[in-house]
Amino acid sequence: MRIVLLCWVFFWMLGGAQERPVQWLQRAQQAESSLVIAGVRITEIQAGRSVRRIEERFWRQGARSERIEILAPPERRGEILIFREGRWLVYRPSDKEALELSRMPLPGNLLLQTAIELIQAGIVQSEPPVETTLNGRTCVLLRLSLARPKPPRGVSPERREPFPASVSLWIDKETGVILRREVTMHPNAPALRTEITRLEINPRITPDMFNLPPGVVARPLEGTYKTVEEAQRVVPFPIRTPAYLPEKATLERVLVRWRGPGRAPVVILHYQTPSARFSLFQAYKTRDSAFQRPSKRPERLNVRFWQDDDYVFGLVGDLPRAEIEKIARSLSR
């Protein structure tokens, strides 16, 4: 009887150690949705040849509310982001107004849900989980990447999500919290890395941490818009839109980047298709006259720059070259 019991315990433990990737993702999703945590995390964004670093202190109540205080870079130190009731607001303690981020990032638990669905549909695959340690905590490393060479039967190739080249997750074995996450758009070159360098479980949290201070009024953050019409209200030249777009392309957001006093802004229309992303840049009456070829660009991206009347256009994306040219043609007057 004892032998049978021991065998059962042995196999049960063996099974526990070999949980499937989807089960780990579900654990992480549950932790993301329900745990009360705080800590410090560092995000690094690859920007061309340089890396930008953001350090932030955070307090999170599951998926309900979150507070972020920026620690670095020094020029942004002290900015506070608050998530509550479905809104992200940002303010500085010295200011009497807060800015509402108009484009909501997809919450972490929904990102994980998406990953789970893509794995279950056979679009994304996971390497077997590997046990490792990070900052003294035992965790499981999951590496997710697009399944190759083609999606399984029944899944249309057009339904592929523009999933990054790979997403690696370091999931804390004890809590399910994702301690580190790396997103690469190109093999072996992390484009975004977020790591929790200090983690507190069930920290002391007060409700007013997730409220704006009294007297602070919220208004929309300028610079990012959902539609061209919204952006056109602040842009001093007619924004041009392509007459041709690839099938199922959707406009994800419009960014307006001001380039200094007296200079017209650059408008960026960022599109997504079921399998690619591309951005259309347009600058008006630009004074940049010395034209040179860009010296370096990622091979996976197709790039085209051209001038038409008073506009300088740029198209950047992982669309086929022919599609890029078709869009470019459709913008010419």
Binding site: T43, I68, L81, V90, P105, L111, I178, R181, V183, L192
Partner: peptide, 9 residues
């Protein structure tokens, strides 16, 4: 794909 809104912002 960022778990925080900071890169977006």
């Amino acid at each position: 794909w960022s778990p925080t809104p900071t890169p977006n912002y």
